[in-house]
Structure formats: structure tokens, C-alpha cells
Nucleic acid binder design. Structure first.
Lengths: 172, 172
DNA sequence: GGGCGCATGTAATGAGTTACATGATTGA
DNA sequence: TCAATCATGTAACTCATTACATGCGCCC
């Protein structure tokens, strides 16, 4: 559902062909969406069948024709519906990468510290990557900002844990 | 992988049968894991085939027999491996529920505000639910704490957005 | 006697991913 | 001439979910 919303929202701002959309998502929205190429093509076809978007083929040279999509009235209505639904709801994410924390006790304090330091390095790289994302126009930027905030909060949390490991005599 | 880790970690602390595990996950870890019943049964069978755990049947009355599982040496080794792998890595989550934020511009300021207020209510309920989770022994509690922190950070972020919507004359 | 709890699963479905397939163009 | 970019997809697979299936025990 959020994938459809993203595609509709992007096409609404500017008509694009599949390749272009995929490029944009990979390059500019990598921090906010993990939608993969075949998924995007699949959804575009599905939405076209549903009448949410229409395609217009254009040949450039001898390459495969570009299928450029734009919203229909039905597409706009779907967008409005999905947008409202998405904004009003909130399903907190699960944190599967977290699971290990529950069993830190199983390790010696030294090793736990070492592993969490490694984790911290990875997280720092993510923070740097998120900070390097180019600025986007309008509210698209808010996706980026949210991720940046989240990553900083994660770093805070990790640092709290590390501090506890160092100071708490009961651990280990 | 994190699902296997969770099951192994729980069985390592205390042998349990499938029903018991499922109950614990649903009641006590609902905030941290969304693993469903059939998935747990399936993984338990798979891990038993792999020799990570062994089952011991015990009949209680005329009910279906309980299959109580405990770790083998191979299971302990797998646990140690998965734990290290999980702790040292970090894949930041995607935030699909977020997608709508990217297109807030499509709405009037009043409606955006209204929808985000609705979202805030839902989030508040989640915060309350997370705060009400009973305390768990040892590092299991850290999963709960992490979630609580995350939800508070989300609330902060939403409030920042709402404040911007109210003050920024450029929006709308 | 009816519904919930105990205790186990199977089957069908779905959403999305990875790997594969195709073929022209462009630049080093 | 070799690799990367442009441009589209299909096929196989994985992982997990929902819905379904079974049947006794216990309490009201």
C-alpha cells in the first residue's frame, strides 16, 4: 500500500517512465524506501490495469520504448485515499535487528562491548550516509529528516547501553 | 534469522513447549516480536530436524502431547553464531508508515493537521501500551526499553511536524 | 451444553526478492 | 572491444501470514 502511495505521489508531481522512477528511488530515496526494480515495474503494470495511471510509449532511438506514466482521475482519487489512510494510521515497526540485545547476558562483558562497538561503527556509517543525502524539494525532505532523527536516536540508545555495560557491576 | 535467534534464546533460558513459547511471545513480547503461531511451530520443527533442539513428548491427561524443546550442543553453537552476527550488524528499518509525510503538501494545512492529530492519538496509545508492558528479567527488558525510547522519539518528531505546520507560513 | 483454553499443526495465499533474460547505445 | 547505461520485464523462490482443521478438558 505504501509502495503504491509512493509511486502515485511521485508520478503526481511529474510524469516519469519506469526506469526513471527506479533510478530516483534507488539514488535519492534509498534512505526511505527499499522498493526494488521488479516490484516497481509490477506495481506500475497493476496500477495501469486498474486505471490509476495511463502509459504513453515513446521511442528514443532504437532503445526499448519508454513507458511514461501519468495519473488519471481515478489515480488521483486513489492517491488521496491512500494518503489519508497512511497519515492517520500508525503501526510501529518491529525491530528484528534488535533481537540480540535480549540475550546480551549470554556473552562476557568484554565481548558484548566489542560487538556493540562494531554495531556502533556500522550505525555511524548509516548516520553519515543519511546526512549526505541531497536535499529534496518540499515535504519529500521530511522522509529524509525522519530517518536522520531515527538514526541519531538509535545512536543515543546504543551509547546508553555501552555506558551501562561499562559501569554496571552487575552485568557479566 | 532473528526469529530463530529469539526461539533459541528463549529455549536456552528455559525449556518450553510450542504452546508455551507462543503464549510468551504473544503476551509478553508483543511489543518486540510479531512472530505468529504457525511460524513458531514451523521453525521449531525445522530446528529440530537440523538438530539444534530436541523434543521430548509428555502427555498431560488426554490432551495432545506437549513437545518440550531444549537446546543441543549444535543449537547452542548456532545460538552463539546468530547472536554475534545479529549484534555486530545493523540494518536500519524502513519506515513505510511514513510515506504519506512525503506528500503532505497535497493537502490543505487544516486537513494535514487534523490527520496528524489522529496519528498522534494512535501513537499515544502505543506509547501507553509500551509503558504498561510488565518488566522482564535481565536483558530481555532492553527490547522493551528500546521500543519505549523509539516511540517517544516518534512522538517528538510528530510534535515537531505539527509545530511547523502551525507556524510556517509557507506551508499550504 | 456451549464456549474458552490447551495443544498441535496443514494448506492456501501473498508480497516482495533474487536471479535471469534481452538487446541497443555510449564512452574509455 | 569491453563495460556500463538505458529500458524493459519474467520466473523461481522465500518467508511469513491468514484461514482452516482437530479434539479433549474445564468451567459456568
Amino acid at each position: 500500500m505504501h509502495r503504491e502511495l509512493l509511486l502515485l505521489g511521485l508520478l503526481r508531481r511529474k510524469e516519469m517512465h519506469g526506469y526513471e522512477l527506479n533510478e530516483f528511488i534507488q539514488r535519492d530515496l534509498a534512505a526511505c524506501s527499499d522498493m526494488k526494480k521488479p516490484t516497481a515495474y509490477f506495481l506500475l503494470n497493476k496500477m495501469a490495469e486498474q486505471g490509476w495511471i495511463v502509459e504513453e510509449s515513446s521511442q528514443v532511438g532504437n532503445r526499448p520504448p519508454r513507458r511514461t506514466y501519468r495519473l488519471t482521475a481515478a489515480g488521483e482519487a486513489a492517491f488521496q485515499r491512500l494518503l489519508r489512510q497512511n497519515l492517520a494510521a500508525y503501526q510501529p515497526p518491529a525491530f528484528p535487528e534488535d533481537t540480540g540485545l535480549a540475550f546480551l547476558e549470554a556473552l562476557s562483558r568484554a565481548e558484548a562491548q566489542e560487538l556493540l562497538e562494531a554495531r556502533r561503527q556500522v550505525l555511524l556509517e548509516q548516520v553519515a550516509a543519511a546526512a549526505a543525502v541531497p536535499e529534496h524539494p518540499g515535504s519529500l525532505q521530511w522522509l529524509v529528516e525522519h530517518r536522520q532523527r531515527h538514526l541519531r536516536a538509535e545512536l543515543d540508545w546504543l551509547d546508553t547501553l555501552l555506558a551501562r555495560l561499562k559501569s554496571d557491576p552487575l552485568v557479566e
